[in-house]
Every structure is written in structure tokens, then in C-alpha cells.
């Protein structure tokens, strides 16, 4: 499929060296996106975590061991594996900014997109969401609740983008040229170590424009060619190495 280039490219940059794995982003994400609490959170294969923090290590024995944390939202790939496979156009990459949409009322729940995504960024509503009594009063107005049986994923808190555009319109500004910091996903707002940066990487006035050019910036699985809109930064060689598969002879 033809890859569409947009004038705006909403880009997340995560500084892995600063992530302490505290989990605030994951909690905030659930609150913002109305993900019902899950009693058995330890079954990582059935829980819904649009934002998931992975634990990485350098594979060495004590005392050479080092570890790191890698928060994984949806990569909003430029060349997404999930979009072309959807049989019912429930997921697209067609909006200015390049956020990969996931439309719950359209989704039939075939899970082909989940099989296609190597980042495991897509989740399935295995059961109807149930909030403890009363907790539905703390639902966020920003994300619709989903019935069981549909696929869902991180969308960079997309309705915050819509809110920011509405605000720009109200102030007589161009809704497609938002100033840096007007549009912030919930995970960024919650991150106490400032590991997450966000903005339009095509806009030189946005911080991420330069951050993605940092010498330590990389993306996950670049060799497969999915062109993610999420970048990571780490000074540590071993972390950067784990961003992609390398043949033994290519490792240093």
C-alpha cells in the first residue's frame, strides 16, 4: 500500500535512560482511556495495557547486569502492518498527523491486526468491561467505552488532539499548526521523570523535531520497515542493540 506523507507527524520520543518503570503512565492511560481495572493484572496475556512498560536487561550475570525500562505505546507506524490487513476498514492511517485510528463500532473482532503487529500494541476486549460499583462515575469523557469483542489500542490520546484543535479554532489559530505542548497524551502528563517527549516532528518549533535526530535516537524493529512514529533514546549501547534483531556477526 502507498505510504501517505502528512504535513504533521505526531511523534513520541521516549528517553529510556530516564524511565524508572514506575508505572504512572500505565495508570494514567487507563484512567484517560476508560480501561476497566483488571483483577488479575498478572496475566499479561489477557490484560489491556495500551501503554506497557517492558523490563529490559543486558543479559549479563551479576555483577555486570544492567537493566532498563521501555514504555511501549502504539508505534503509529508510517507503514503499519495492522492497517492493510483489516477486512472492514476499522483501522486506518488516514488522518493528518499520522495517528493510526481504531474504530470500535466498526471492528468485528477478527484479531488479524493483532496477529500482524509485532509490537503487541493491540489488545482485545475478551470480556465486557466491568467497573467496580460506582467507578463508572470516574469515566473520562475522552474515550468511548468499548463492548467486548473489539480490538483497541493506544491512539496518542487522540481526543486531546481534537480538544487542542478546538481550542486553536476558538483562539483563531490554525488547528493544523498547534504550538508545542498544546497536545499532550496522558502518559506524558503522568511521567514523573519526564522520559516522554511529544510533538510534531515535522514542525521545527517542536522539541521532538530535533530529538528524533539525536545520535542516540532509534526506533523498534527498523529493519522490518514499519517506520514507527515512536522514537527511543538511550546512551547505552546494549539498549540500542535490543531495538532490533541483529545477526551474530553484526553485533558489537
Amino acid at each position: 500500500m502507498q505510504q501517505i506523507e502528512f504535513d504533521t507527524k505526531w511523534t513520541m520520543v521516549v528517553d529510556i535512560d530516564k524511565c524508572s518503570g514506575c508505572g504512572s503512565c500505565m495508570v494514567s492511560c487507563q484512567a484517560e482511556n476508560n480501561i476497566a481495572p483488571m483483577e488479575d493484572g498478572s496475566n499479561k496475556l489477557k490484560t489491556l495495557t495500551w501503554m506497557l512498560v517492558y523490563e529490559l536487561n543486558n543479559g549479563k550475570e551479576f555483577p555486570e547486569r544492567e537493566s532498563a525500562y521501555l514504555p511501549r505505546p502504539c508505534m503509529q507506524c508510517g507503514n503499519p502492518a495492522c492497517v492493510p490487513v483489516c477486512p472492514v476498514v476499522a483501522t486506518t492511517k488516514d488522518e493528518e498527523g499520522g495517528i493510526v485510528s481504531q474504530i470500535y463500532p466498526r471492528c468485528i473482532g477478527c484479531r488479524y491486526c493483532m496477529a500482524a503487529c509485532p509490537y503487541h500494541a493491540r489488545y482485545f476486549g475478551w470480556f465486557d468491561p466491568i467497573w467496580p460499583e460506582g467507578m463508572e462515575k470516574a469515566l473520562s469523557p475522552n474515550t468511548s467505552t468499548r463492548p467486548r469483542g473489539v480490538v483497541e489500542k493506544c491512539n496518542f490520546c487522540h481526543s486531546r488532539l481534537m480538544d487542542a484543535r478546538a481550542r486553536a479554532r476558538a483562539e483563531g489559530m490554525d488547528p493544523n499548526k498547534l504550538p508545542d505542548g498544546w497536545y499532550k497524551p496522558a502518559c506524558l502528563e503522568a511521567c514523573p521523570t519526564g522520559a516522554i517527549s511529544f510533538g510534531d516532528s515535522k514542525n521545527p518549533e517542536h522539541k521532538v523535531h530535533d530529538l528524533i535526530k539525536d545520535k542516540n535516537a532509534f526506533r523498534l524493529l527498523e529493519s522490518i520497515g514499519m517506520d514507527p512514529q515512536v522514537y527511543y533514546i538511550s546512551r547505552r549501547d546494549w539498549v540500542r542493540e535490543q531495538s532490533d534483531n541483529h545477526l551474530p556477526k553484526d553485533k558489537h
Binding site: P84, P87, V88, V89, R106, Y112
Partner: peptide
Amino acid sequence: HPNVHSML
């Protein structure tokens, strides 16, 4: 609502 690109 078919997606003509999808094998499915």
C-alpha cells in the same frame, strides 16, 4: 465495508 487490500 470491505477493505480491498485485506487478504481476509
